[in-house]
Computed example of a mutant assay.
Amino acid sequence: MSLYKTAKAIVSVIFFPLYRIRVIGKDNIPDQGPVIICSNHISNLDPPVVGITSPRDISFMAKGELFERPLLGTLLNAIRAFPVKRGGTDRYALRQGLDILKDGNVLGLFPEGTRSKTGTVGKPLAGAGFFALRSNAVIVPCAIIGSYKPGRRLTVIYGKPMDMETHRSAKTAAKDAAEAIMEEIQNLIDYSQHASLDK
């Protein structure tokens, strides 16, 4: 068993009962081919939670500071995360992300770039739009809903793949494409609240 699958199994055993994780829509993630999973960001635990609820292995782009924390850094490395420098253009991280997609694998992104302190969806950076427009990957929006309090329900919803071809053909700006992705994530959150899925 690979280090990724071992880490996934261990984290699953702990997290699923601890946070009463419920997964909705994971069949919306294609079985093969390049995929970008874009999620809202409410906790430093979001990467492992998306990692254990996705049927496919994911390589995450995560802020470099997280890798400086001993336990979290080890966990992020185990689940194939790679660091990105904030505050500027990290060309190495961008190239690494594109290579992951070029090889037909799954890239995990948090378009907001930082955690939301209020739990509400914030404005995205251009990064998610860049990857969506510069690749032929399928974009799957994801919403994490809950408080990460032990014993409380945490819901992870994977939405239907987005059609980005219109944006690619129109040469949409990366920031606008990222905002379209965040809108789909917000729609998933709104749906969960309407359907009371966070209970």
Rank of each mutant, 00 (worst) to 15 (best):
D176F: 01
A178T: 09
P48Y: 07
P150Y: 12
Y19A: 02
A81K: 01
Y148W: 11
S147C: 02
L66P: 12
L133A: 06
K26V: 00
E112Y: 11
D176T: 14
I52H: 07
G108L: 05
S12C: 01
L3C: 00
L109Q: 02
E179Y: 02
T118G: 09
F16P: 00
G73V: 07
I79E: 00
K5T: 05
P70L: 08
K175W: 00
R152V: 00
A93F: 08
K175Q: 14
A143N: 08
K85T: 06
C142K: 01
I144G: 01
G146F: 12
G25C: 09
V13A: 14
D198A: 07
R22D: 10
V11D: 00
S54C: 15
R86M: 04
P161L: 10
A78T: 05
P70F: 06
F110M: 09
M61Y: 07
A143R: 07
N40H: 12
G88R: 12
F16I: 11
A174T: 11
M182R: 02
E179F: 00
S39G: 11
K149G: 04
L107F: 08
K85S: 13
I42Q: 08
Y4R: 04
V138A: 12
K8F: 00
R95E: 11
K63H: 06
N40C: 11
P34K: 08
P70G: 03
P30Q: 08
S147K: 14
R91K: 12
M61D: 02
I36G: 01
F67N: 03
K171W: 02
K160D: 11
M182V: 10
T166K: 15
M162I: 14
V35P: 08
V50D: 00
Y158I: 03
L133Y: 06
R69I: 14
